[in-house]
Amino acid sequence: MNYARKISNTSSVEARFARVLQTADINLAEIDDWTPIGNDASPSYNYFQGIYNGNGYTISNLKIRSGETNKGLFGYVTRKDSSTPAVLTGIHLRNVDIDVSHNSNIFCGAIAGEASSSTVITFCSARGEIKTDATSTASYENYSGGIIGNNNGTISYCRADVKVIASSNSSESTSQCAAGGIVGYNYGTILACEASGSEVSAQSNAAEAQAGGIAGCTNGYITSCTSGVGKIIANGNGLEVNAGGVAGNQYGAVYSSYARGDATASGGRDDALKAGAIVGYHHAFVDIDLYIGTGAGGQGTSNLSPSSGILYKADATDEEIYNLMQTKDFTKEISTTTYDATRFPAYGIEVTKVTFSSKGAWSYDPASGKIRIRGLPSVTGLSSVTGSSSVSPP
């Protein structure tokens, strides 16, 4: 049964607390304009507060052309109560096609538009293209990302191969247009995630433009992530125009990660343009350590200087990257699921707290010379109903 479609079009109460187990691949090709599951629009405020376990199967041909502020497979996701977080796990989107404009805020991601602080997103993946345009000249935000648009939750072990192009017509310099390979704007936690895709770009009229391989702007916590996004572009005339291999604007702590993309900033005043292979702009009062940027330009115009834990090296090998990541361990208690992404099917969706280790997140194979994050789902060779393995082994 296409239960994803069913709960998208059913009563607010039923959709709000649904516990869904996907049991087959889903093709949404017949739906020209998907209505996200759960929204943050009055008068119903139909937040999704349940559990969706994609179980390693795929959802293909998600297309969105209109709708409210929150756009994605899910709209707005939050907890049911203080002891029951919302959970999105094992969801794998293919051929995502989102092309929307809105005369208000836009929070857009392939998996969900917005995730609250009590949301757990884990073992998900997405592939496709997202294009968003905030058309109002008023003070509205555009946060667009490959997985989540506006993130306050915990995202772990997710992978996105999504081209993200976000634009804003706001004439207010305090507004923001933020685009990221995983998240547009991150207030929460991102761990062990990988972004690829050909381009992430933020383009604005007068609003701040922030573009990053992982997050356009981060005011939260990022560790053990990697970006292979080819081009990271910030273009605008605002007070800040920042582009970075990992984050365009870094307000929060970031550790043990690397980026291979080329970041550029253009448009406005020279003193407003900041771009670097790791971050565009680094705020001195927050931590950053064990980072490597291999993109062209190195430090560029960013204010993040090289050090023992900050390396700009265009020809850095995977072995060098791995060895640096093993010099320190950053730990954090996180909420995750018992879902076992190495099995198919993998039904477990109980939420548990574990201690995440940045050193333990990485593996290196001397035979192939490749570094990778343990346990990530694939963006290409996922299972269908044949029952083959849905992820790369840990």
Rank of each mutant, 00 (worst) to 15 (best):
Y3D: 11
T10H: 00
L21Q: 00
Q22C: 09
D40S: 12
P43R: 01
N53G: 12
G56L: 09
N70S: 07
K80C: 11
G90H: 02
I91V: 12
V96T: 01
D97V: 01
D99L: 00
H102I: 01
N105G: 11
I106Q: 00
S116G: 05
S117G: 10
E129M: 03
D133N: 05
T135H: 04
Y140S: 03
N151P: 08
R159G: 03
D161T: 03
D161N: 12
V162E: 01
I165H: 08
S173F: 04
G181I: 02
S196E: 15
S196H: 09
S201W: 06
S201I: 02
A202H: 07
G216Y: 02
T223N: 04
C225G: 07
S227I: 07
V229Y: 05
I232T: 10
A234C: 15
A234K: 10
G238L: 00
A263N: 09
G268N: 04
D271N: 06
A277P: 07
A277S: 13
I292M: 12
G293L: 04
G297N: 04
Q299T: 12
N303T: 13
S308K: 09
G309C: 09
K313N: 11
D315N: 11
I321V: 09
Y322T: 01
Q326S: 02
K328A: 11
T338K: 05
Y339Q: 02
T342D: 10
G348Q: 13
Y364W: 14
T380P: 08
S389I: 13
S390Y: 08
V391H: 00
